[in-house]
Amino acid sequence: MSLDTFPSDWSTALVLVAHPDDPEYGMSAGIARWTSEGKRVVYGLATSGEVGIEGMPAEVAGPAREAEQIASAAVVGVTEVEFWGFPDSQVRNSPELRAKITEVIERVSPDIVLCTYGGAEFAPGFPNQSDHIEFAAALLDAYDEMTSPPSQLYWNGPGGTHAVDVDGFVEAAVESLACHSKYLEVLDPTTPVIEQARNQVATFTKPIDGFDAAHATSFTLMRPKS
């Protein structure tokens, strides 16, 4: 199955995710390419990931993870990053979350919206996190309720419909993910942060069958439906 080339006829993309580091698992190489071409990319995060570092109090981890996300975004050319303050690990497809998503979309006025994968499993036996599933569902519902939504909405994950050639931007993605050092050091204390980052980015930027690129990242068009 061949994948379409991700469109280039846009100027502003809004990346909406649940946690710090979510953009770095799959999207950051593409984002680095787009910002190098002069495109504007804005990040909106539902939570600060404050319960995501084992052994670190939420009041310490939240600001630390926000700082890591801001630094990580800057590596790939993103300077507009906002955190909405919803509770980490308790994200729900609620009226409050949908209203916030709508407010941000209307304020930023992007041409396209991107989010992390919202399916139940990345692969058989590899379940998705509840926060990701609930957030993606809220985003799709909010999009469907808008009178004049952005022209397209994609999520990043398995089963892609479009791909981006990210050859030349893999190292930027590695550096970007490595900025989440406090999180990664606890996640895997035995593997150096840069090695963890390189391994993860390699997974999301390997060649894709049906798409002619040495390194590629895939996205699935969720709205509008064909």
Rank of each mutant, 00 (worst) to 15 (best):
A74I: 05
H132N: 13
W34G: 04
A71T: 06
G44V: 02
Y117N: 09
Y25T: 15
G26K: 04
E96K: 11
A71I: 03
S36V: 13
D9I: 12
S28V: 15
E103A: 14
E68S: 10
R65C: 04
T12W: 03
A58V: 08
P127M: 12
A123F: 08
P57E: 14
F126V: 11
I53S: 10
R40P: 14
Q129F: 15
S48A: 14
S89K: 15
N128L: 15
L16I: 14
A67V: 03
V91I: 13
A120W: 11
A71N: 13
R33E: 07
S48L: 12
G30W: 11
E50T: 00
A64T: 01
T12K: 03
N128P: 13
T79S: 14
E37R: 00
A123H: 10
H132V: 02
Q69V: 06
I105H: 05
A99S: 09
R65I: 07
T35Y: 05
A120C: 11
G52L: 10
T47I: 08
S28Q: 03
V108Y: 02
G62H: 09
G118K: 03
I101G: 07
G118E: 03
G49H: 05
V113Y: 04
I101Q: 12
Q129M: 15
E59P: 00
R98G: 07
E66F: 09
G77A: 02
A99Q: 08
F86V: 02
V81K: 12
I105Y: 01
V17P: 04
A58W: 06
R33P: 04
F122H: 13
G118S: 07
P20W: 11
Q90Y: 14
E50R: 04
V41P: 00
F83A: 02
G30Q: 10
P95N: 09
R40F: 04
K39E: 04
L45Y: 05
D111Q: 02
D88Q: 08
H19A: 08
E24K: 01
V41K: 10
G44Y: 06
S36Q: 10
P23F: 14
G26C: 06
V15N: 00
T79E: 14
R65N: 03
A99Y: 06
V104G: 04
M27W: 07
N128S: 15
D131S: 08
P63L: 10
N128W: 12
E59A: 07
E50W: 00
L45A: 01
L16V: 15
A61E: 10
G55P: 03
D21C: 07
S130Y: 14
P57L: 14
A120D: 15
A123K: 13
L114H: 04
F122E: 02
P57N: 14
V91E: 04
A29E: 06
T47R: 12
S11L: 09
